[in-house]
Amino acid sequence: MLQFAIKRLGQSIVLILIVTMITFFLMNLAPGGPSSMMRMDATEEERAAISEQLGLDDPIPIRYGKWLIDAMQGDLGLSLSSGQEVTDRILERFPFTLQLTMWTIVLSIIFGVLFGIISATNRNTWKDHTINFGSVIGLSVPSFWLAIMMILLFSVQLKWLPSSGVGEGSLLDQFKASIMPVVILSTATLPTIVRFTRSSMLEVITQNYIRTSRAKGIKERTVIYSHALRNALIPVISIIGVLIPRLLSGAVIVESVFGWPGMGRLIVEAAQSRDYNLVMGVTVIVTVLVVVCNFIVDIIYSKVDPRVKNMG
């Protein structure tokens, strides 16, 4: 276990290095460069002074090195557009994204697994066909289009749900405000979980041990929901690790459409204002988040499948 953790830590560090390096270089290659974020009325001298102060005159690799050394000490620098600490700006937004993605992943797992089982145990019936059809729709309809359609229907026409924001005051308002974002975000994850559960379940129920469990005379419900499901979930768990980055990139679109003040919108704002410290900060945090989630997924995986106990 320890060996495995160390190996994963090493891999994660390499991953974070590569991701931040690419982001850093791309940012600096963009036309205008980071100094164009400065006020339009800045004079030539002011520009030079600020460039000097921010170290913008150094070559890119040196600047990346400096940034990296600071970042490793927990200092992500100042936001160039607001002057606040990058860490503070991220922490301010982080809970909103967490709220959105947690709900999405929890609901996607619950309903995804449930629909997957229903689909598999009622193979080739109308239930199966309906669920399959729903998954295909969910996967193929672009989420921004679906978001706009939902806003038109539920906010503009029916006036049931707010079209943007996180909901003021009461818990009910907050709940109503998060319905549409969570639903839209789920279209990226739910259908995948449904399909994985279905195919994995279909494979598992033909296995010899399922026949054994029936031959023992245990209840059919136990056969499906304990013996079969426990095995069918193993591949589903690993797909959840893959879905987490997809979820976070989905959050960028959803948060922008619904004016949701999370990290997804923050990175868009940061990129638009060439606030490259902020872009780098969000990139690092998101990458670390993905790495941590995958690590958790692997731990759960090894708990569910006794055969992978001694991995490393």
């Binding site: 041990y209 245990i218 426990r230």
Partner: peptide, 24 residues
């Protein structure tokens, strides 16, 4: 039948390697 299986009539299968549930 469920009450007969494993109780009055039991069966053992051809493939011992795969006949037991790997996760229990």
């Amino acid at each position: 039948m469920r009450q007969v299986r494993g109780n009055d009539i039991s069966i053992i299968f051809q493939e011992p390697m795969t006949a037991l549930n790997p996760v229990f």
